[in-house]
Design a protein around this nucleic acid. Structure first.
Length: 483
RNA sequence: GGGAUCGUAGCUCAACGGCAGAGUGCUCGGCUUUUAACCGAUGAGAUGGCGGUUCAAAUCCGCCCGAUCCUACCA
């Protein structure tokens, strides 16, 4: 039955037995002192005597030649050819070499040089078996075409699709850069609860879970905001958290039910200080990638060179919708014309609907859109002279909301009022008006005036790595379980 | 939720109403300098599921399951 899935596995299991019979542990042992393959490749090839090297990696290609065999060994820094000669590795080594499969893990001692065709090669003198692959690895020609298979086997995707590993490393670099940037500015990183009694800080449907001992339902957090602001009350003047939030909503190229947010709060700042900070932070990430400040995205290019455009919400609205935000009649007319029923809806709900429909996808940016209709922003400070305007901005790049920032509302009386106000026309789960007494109490002890910022890390990574779908910047995106 | 496309060997694909095929991988044989090595051989499939049309279905039709893309929802 050679050829069936079972026979692949049977054949590999049999090889595992034979490796054991050679007196070796088929699952490997400690293996000290190996060098990254990428570093080996930079050694001098003409050194006398030749450089001695020790590497460890996965067998990704194999060419047998009778009494000699060539392997391509891969680790996460690179790939290199290994030549195994019958004479050179001795009887034990040669017996082991006969049992090697694609996907097995192998340590090699040898000398570094090149073959007569010029290929950089480790000429093996000792082999160390480091782990068996019982399942066959992806086909060397066809590879992994099925996207679902790749997502369900991300570990293989990382090995066989170099851009996947590259993107994962860029994500790590971006997050590390954010931490360094903020730490350098005196911000403290904290961890706040993910289990919330009230799912506040944003408008989204939460995941519900249950705590048995207290016999209460709890929600997975949908934002970091309210705990971080409590820490402002507590005197942690510059505070941030990079953490997972959970929203029980649809899955799309821009949405995963759990995603990573960075939120920060700076006492005695405001939304304009946040604009400067945001620009500096993201430019630092762009610079960390080392590919210049103009980065490709899809079939265009984004120029991150500061300063970035700043545009007032009302001005953009007028420009793209064609009527003023004060022109309620005109707004109702346009909504109805576009098939969006306007009856019993707060004017600001209509305004924001039109903004999303007509303006957002024009915002190629980077552009800071600032001064939002106050009723949409229950956690934001109103302008002192015009309480209908909230001191809020969103950063748009390529029509995506990348960051959201406020001058934080620190007046407990107004906060309690906005929590209580349910905007007409908004379903309850779409409203941020969720009364949180405990939070209001915290404000009553005095929260310093502050600027706050939230950044969607996954979307930032998408933009900076030219990735069109969020599940390619999340190593393990949510998938329907296999039946 | 709506629309489009797709599901054939472990993998990548072909066959488009007439005997289900190739490459690769697997297994066996040959080769001490190969480069997705090469040469030779052996295996490997009820074509996602159920039903229908037909002398004949992978192919046409219906339903189901699953996936992908677009769209909607997600302030």
């Amino acid at each position: 039955m050679a050829g069936t899935q079972d026979s692949f596995e049977a054949s590999r299991a049999e090889k595992l037995q034979r490796i054991e019979a050679l007196g070796l542990d088929p699952w490997g042992t400690r293996f000290d002192g190996h060098q990254p393959i990428g570093a080996v490749r930079t050694l001098r090839i003409d050194a006398t005597p030749p450089e001695r090297v020790r590497v460890a990696g996965r067998i990704v290609l194999r060419r047998g030649m009778g009494k000699v065999a060539f392997l391509d060994l891969w680790d996460w820094t690179g790939r290199i050819q290994v030549m195994i000669g019958q004479k050179q590795v001795g009887e034990q080594g040669w017996n082991l070499a006969q049992q090697l499969d694609l996907g097995d893990l192998l340590g090699v001692d040898g000398t570094f040089g090149k073959t007569r065709t010029g290929e950089l090669t480790i000429f093996a003198e000792g082999l160390h078996f480091l782990g068996k692959s019982l399942n066959p690895h992806p086909d060397k020609w066809g590879g992994m075409q099925d996207i679902e298979f790749r997502l369900r086997h991300r570990y293989l995707d990382l090995i066989y699709n170099p851009e996947v590993l590259d993107r994962a490393r860029k994500r790590i670099l971006i997050i590390r850069t954010i931490r360094r940037f903020l730490d350098d500015q005196g911000f403290c990183e904290v961890e706040t609860p993910t289990l919330h009694a009230i799912a506040g800080g944003a408008a989204a449907r939460p995941f519900i879970t249950h705590h048995n001992a207290l016999d209460i339902d709890l929600f997975l957090r949908i934002a970091l905001e309210l705990h971080l602001k409590r820490l402002l009350v507590g005197g942690i003047e510059r505070v941030y958290e990079i953490g997972r939030v959970f929203r029980n909503e649809g899955i799309s190229p821009k949405h995963n039910p759990e995603f990573t947010m960075m939120e920060l709060y700076q006492a005695y700042g405001d939304y304009r200080s946040m604009m400067d900070l945001t620009e500096g932070l993201i430019v630092a990430c762009v610079d960390a990638l080392g590919a210049g400040r103009r980065l490709p995205f899809g079939d265009t290019e984004i120029d991150y060179s500061p300063p970035w455009e700043r545009a007032r919400y009302a001005d953009l609205f007028h420009k793209h919708v064609g009527v003023s935000m004060d022109d309620t009649e005109g707004i109702v007319r346009i909504c109805e014309a576009r098939g969006f029923p306007s009856a019993n809806k707060h004017p600001d709900v209509l305004i924001h609907h039109l903004f999303e429909e007509c303006v957002e996808d024009k915002l190629l940016g980077p552009v800071f859109v600032y001064d939002y209709p106050a009723s949409l922003c229950p956690l934001t400070k109103r302008q002192h002279l015009n309480p209908n305007v909230a001191e809020r901005f969103e950063l748009y790049i390529q029509g995506m909301e990348l960051a959201n920032a406020y001058t934080e509302l620190n007046d407990p009386v107004t906060q309690e009022a906005t929590f209580r106000m349910q905007l007409a026309g908004l379903p309850e789960e779409d409203s941020m008006a969720k009364m949180d007494d405990d939070f209001v109490q915290a404000l009553r002890y005095g929260m310093p005036p502050a600027g706050g910022l939230g950044v969607g890390i996954d979307r930032l990574v998408m933009l900076l790595t030219n990735t069109s779908t969020i599940r390619d910047v999340i190593l393990f995106p949510l998938l329907r379980p296999e039946k």
